[in-house]
Every structure is written in C-alpha cells, then in structure tokens.
Nucleic acid binder design. Structure first.
Lengths: 232, 232
DNA sequence: GCAAGGTCTTGACATTTTTCAAGCGAGCGC
DNA sequence: GCGCTCGCTTGAAAAATGTCAAGACCTTGC
C-alpha cells in the first residue's frame, strides 16, 4: 500500500494504539483502490475477505430481501466498515456500494484477525469500535420503532443541521431517494413529509433546507440524546 | 457472591477464557439478587453502574420516547446485558424489567472495565460478544425495514418453532401483547395478523401454535439466514 | 363463588403509508 | 438546441396499520 494514506489511517481510533510493527504487518497485504460512483463493493452473504476503510468519497450500506431494498447506513471518511463480519469470520449481513467516486483501502480479513490475536491494544480498540457501532444501531432501531416517518424526518433534519454547523440553512448530503430508504419510507412519502413540515417552519428548495422556526420544529421533533446523539 | 452460580457464569463464552485470578477479582464485588416479575431493573439514560447477568427467569429490554414504548429484546439465561454501555461507561440506551421471577447477578461496571484493561483474553471475549450483539441488531433492523408486519410474524413463528424443537406444535414463550411490540405492531394488529396466517396453515389456540402446512407458511415467510439465523 | 383486573379479540373508523400513473424540470449527450 | 433520462413531485386510490370502544375470556384474590 502506498504511504500517502498511512497517517490518516494510523490516526483512526481503531489503529492509533497498536504497535508500529503490527500496524506495518496489518497493512503489508493491504491495497488502496479508486472506485467510480455506484459500484458494488461487496454483497451480503459473501464471506468477509477484506476489512474496508473509506479514505474519501462515501459508501452506502444496504440490504435486500425478496425484491425489496433498504439503505442501512452511510459510511463517510475516514472510517471502516464490516468490522464485525471480519472479526467473526462470518458472511456480510449488508451489501456496500459507492455513492460517489471513492478511495478505499482493503485489508485482508485474515490479517485483521491475526493481528487482533496478538496485539492487545488493537483488540481493545476493536471493543470500543464495536460498542460504538452497536449503540448506533440500537439508536437507529429506537428511531424506527418509536417514531412515525414524519418524526423521523424532522429529527433527521435537526441532526443534519447540527452536522452542517448549526445554521438555519444547510444542504442534504445525499439524494432524496436514498434519504427516503434511510428513513424507512418511499420517495413519494418523503416528498409529502417535507411538505407537511412546512407547517413547522421547514422550507425545501432542491437539496437546500432552511429552518425558519427552529423552536417549532424542535418542539415537534422532540429530539432525544438517547436516539439522536451519535457521539454517546 | 455465593458460590452456587460461579460455574454457570464461568461457563459463559464471555468469561470462559479469563484467568482465575481476574475472574475472582471481577466477582468479588458482585452479588446475586432475586426479583419478582415486572420489576424495573434499570432505566434508560442512567449511568451504567452494573453489568447484569440473567441466571434464571427472563428480562425485557425496552425503550420509550414521547409516551410510546417498544420492546427491543428479551434476555434469557444465561447471558449478560448492557455490556456495551458498561464498557463505554455511557448511559443505558434501553430500560430493563423482569418478565418473570428472575435471579440476576450484578457486577460493578468499574470492575468490568478494570479487568477489561488487564485481562487480554477477557478483552477478546468481549469483542466476540459485541460483534455477535451488533450483528443481531442489524438483523433485527433488516427485519423491520424490509418486511411487513405479517411477514415479520410469519418468520417469528418459524424461528420460534425451531427454537422449540421443530415440531408442528409449540408454545409462544411470552404474552402476545409483548410479542406485538417486539414485532413492531399493536396488539390488535397482531390478533388480526394471526387470523390472516390461517390462510397459510397457522392455527392459534391461546399460546399454543400449530403449523398445519409447513411448506405454505415457509413459502410465504421466505426466511433468510441473513435475517433469521441468530447463530451466524 | 364472585367480583376485579387483566389480556385478548373484534368491529368500526381514522390515519399513515404505499402503489400506480402522470407530469415537471434539471442535467447530459448528441 | 434538442431530445432523452432520471430524479422529484403530485394526485388518486388502495393497502397497511393504528385507534377507540366494547365485549369475551381467564386468572386471581377475597
């Protein structure tokens, strides 16, 4: 693997504390590849041959069943995905495709497992990472089971607003049709949901969102740190 | 903590590989308590003071938001819960209550974190446990997002049938009102869903289920190992 | 035995969500 | 520029799901 991304990857919490030697060993067999948009990287059910690290671009984790498809998560730089499958040496539960042009590092799963076996700091970092992932999915599930689609959209907007800096105006960071399946609804329904949120001070212009009445929207959305705060 | 449950707990994958000394240290401050049914054990948002181990009985993990409540998972002996919150020293994301009379071991979270810091085998066992938990929640989320409530019920029945030994007749292992929220629907809707499944060879008599046409139900449910197989 | 409280079921109705079909509009290649 | 594709929106109708109210049934305590 070329040197230019070593520092970025080394800075990830997951790899920060491991020994230099093990880090070098881990990435000896790794390589970096560029992918165009909308390329399938992995498919659910396959054995997990590589741990993936998104260096730039964005990746969509999605799942299918019986003609239906849904988006499970979006991976943005710099972070890894399918760590759990890699560690357990189990088949992928989700498929992955690039959303945009992306640069991705591929680390052979067997190397990850080997280094996991010998590097204690790495093992502990994995615990931390997996606990974080677990809690994120729990929050997503609470979001799904406890809220209507309109409430999910309202809370999504508040989260996205915060991520974008907190200003009254911000951009959606991916297309609405994908946002719809992320939120667990159809594109048509999302369109109507945006319209309904007009009443709470949300103005939509293409991908641009303006929140004209922050309090009103917040009162409706009732955000909850135990669902919406990604950091805890 | 009394001796009588040491062996059971020691046999858990999570504690099987750690040193005797650390195991003893870990459970020095632990204690076992009996709880009647329907007792709240912990509440979401609280700091995670204890790792819980269900020794007998059953525990319901549930969450609430804005007057709504939903059941997230059922914990049966012998297993632990809220490991992720304990390790991260973060607030609980879910509440827990006993379903039946239960015997539960409580291990101070700070001891778990301390031993996690010094026992490498324990740290690796936690990785394995968390990876398993993570994958379970992902499956639950796929189940929720990709299937209708009728399909979720049909697949639940097939899973439950398998857990009960695979015979054509078996018992539901908890009350229907809880099953409803586990499956993400209302009790009324569950009642109607059971009725609809008559058409696919499901006969309900109280808590007793009889599957008269296995193939027909399976054809409708379309079970998928990447959603329904809890072991992988 | 009987009353009380709970679950479960049922029916009627409201709401939410999806489906299908059509039209709009921005971006792209020729 | 023109026509095309594709994403987005809109409307109407259907399906799925939730709500409310009432009653059946069961268990439990007295």
């Amino acid at each position: 693997m070329p040197q230019d991304h070593y520092a970025d990857i080394r800075g990830l919490h997951l790899f920060a504390d491991m020994s230099d030697e093990h880090f070098a060993q881990l990435f000896r067999g790794a390589y970096v590849q560029n992918f165009p948009p909308h390329i399938d990287l992995i498919h659910e059910g396959e054995p997990s041959d590589f741990l993936h690290i998104v260096l730039s671009g964005a990746v969509d984790l999605y799942s299918t069943w019986n003609t239906r498809e849904t988006s499970m998560a979006t991976i943005r730089p710099i972070s890894t995905f399918i760590l759990a499958a890699t560690i357990k040496d189990a088949p992928y539960l989700m498929s992955a495709r690039t959303i945009e042009k992306s640069r991705i590092a591929l680390v052979p799963s067997q190397d990850v497992r080997a280094i996991f076996g010998v590097d204690d700091a790495f093992a502990r970092a994995i615990v931390s990472e997996l606990a974080q992932c677990y809690r994120s999915v729990i929050k997503a599930q609470k979001n799904l089971k406890l809220r209507s689609s309109l409430e999910r959209l309202a809370n999504y907007l508040l989260r996205q607003q915060l991520r974008a800096g907190g200003g009254a105006e911000f951009e959606l960071d991916f297309e609405k049709r994908r946002l719809a399946t992320v939120l667990g609804m159809t594109p048509e329904n999302l369109s109507r949901a945006f319209k309904s949120l007009n009443a709470y001070g949300v103005v939509v212009e293409g991908n641009r969102i303006r929140i004209t009445d922050q309090d009103d929207l917040t009162r409706f959305a009732k955000p909850d740190p135990l669902i919406d705060d990604f950091s805890t």
